[in-house]
């Protein structure tokens, strides 16, 4: 009897001989991702920004805070009065715009990474708890998140920074708190869907304890929407940090952060267009690139959009 069942099992044969493992997943991911041209452009732009940030001290022609007293508010090189030493001109106290923008990319990426990591980790833990335990824990966590969501996000961030004191670190913490509810809600919803599936019950019957069930059984199955959210909120974080910097509540001068640069240049907006335009364009293109990339990620990771 054992012989026959074994035989039958083997004769069913291999249904699917697709290769397994990380490389195959990556290849499948790329085939979906590359269908979206905007996403690919966004990805390459983002990679370029990362490279610029990493190699800032090699690429940048000058130091970000080095002053050239002989060249105050010098226009970009193609305008009359421009200087080839300062490709994008200088600001009011004679610092090279291009160098400051290049070093500024470090801050933007740093802000994005830190904010996303904080809000992702905390959000996932809170969301998992809410979705897993339900009942009072759920109500408690979700009502707090609703309160946070009820404030206009930038206003809340401003209040938090005002309480904590203006600095780049505090701005990042404030933005992370403001972004928290989105992660919590997303995780909770995904966890609740997964909880109804049989494999979770099966794991319980096997004797898997709550902690392992939450983080090892359920969490990996909830990651797709979280990755997309992380990519998209990366850009929101940069934007919010720039806004806080512009309002004087984020990075403090002379830090070459893009939002702070904008704030410093505010009074020259009519006399020297380049001091406001270039930081603005830098923020715009980076955020746009990340958003495009996030859309591509969603297309590639959302199982509902997949053709099997």
């Amino acid at each position: 009897m054992t012989e026959t069942t074994m035989q039958e099992g083997i004769e069913e044969g291999i249904i699917d001989s697709r290769p397994t493992g990380f490389m195959a997943d990556l290849r499948e991911f790329w085939s979906y991702f590359s269908e979206n041209r905007g996403a690919v452009i966004g990805l390459f732009f983002f990679i370029a920004v990362v490279l610029i940030a990493v190699l800032a001290n090699i690429i940048a022609p000058h130091l970000p805070n080095e002053q050239f007293r002989d060249a105050l508010l010098q226009p970009p090189f193609w305008q009359t009065g421009g200087d080839a030493r300062f490709l994008l001109g200088t600001d009011a106290i004679g610092r090279d715009m291009l160098s400051r923008l290049i070093y500024g990319s470090r801050y933007s990426l740093f802000i994005g990474c830190i904010v996303v990591s904080i809000s992702l980790v905390v959000g996932v833990i809170l969301g998992l708890m809410a979705g897993f335990f339900r009942g009072r824990v759920d109500t408690f966590i979700m009502r707090i998140m609703d309160v946070v969501l009820a404030f206009p996000s930038l206003l809340l961030a401003l209040v938090l920074v005002a309480i904590l004191g203006p600095s780049l670190i505090n701005a990042m913490v404030a933005i992370a708190i403001v972004q928290q509810p989105h992660y919590v809600r997303l995780t909770r919803a995904a966890v609740m869907t997964e909880m109804t599936k049989d494999y979770v019950t099966a794991a319980r019957v096997i004797g898997v304890k709550s902690l392992r069930l939450m983080f090892i059984t359920i969490l990996p199955n909830c990651m797709a929407p979280l990755i997309v959210q992380a990519a998209l909120s990366f850009s929101t974080a940069i934007l919010d940090a720039a806004a806080l910097g512009f309002l004087g509540m984020g990075a403090q001068p002379p830090t070459p952060e893009w939002g702070t640069m904008l704030a410093e240049a505010r009074e020259f907006i009519l006399r020297a267009w380049w001091v406001v335009t270039f930081p603005g364009v830098a923020i715009l293109t980076t955020v746009l690139a990340i958003n495009l990339m996030g859309d591509g990620l969603r297309d590639a990771l959302d199982p509902k959009l997949k053709r099997s």
């Binding site: 049989d198 494999y199 099966a202 794991a203 019957v205 199955n221």
Partner: peptide, 17 residues
Amino acid sequence: HKKVQIVFQDPYGSLNP
């Protein structure tokens, strides 16, 4: 708990993907 185990109806939902 170890003495009682279960096999579910839907083989697509009962294994962790």
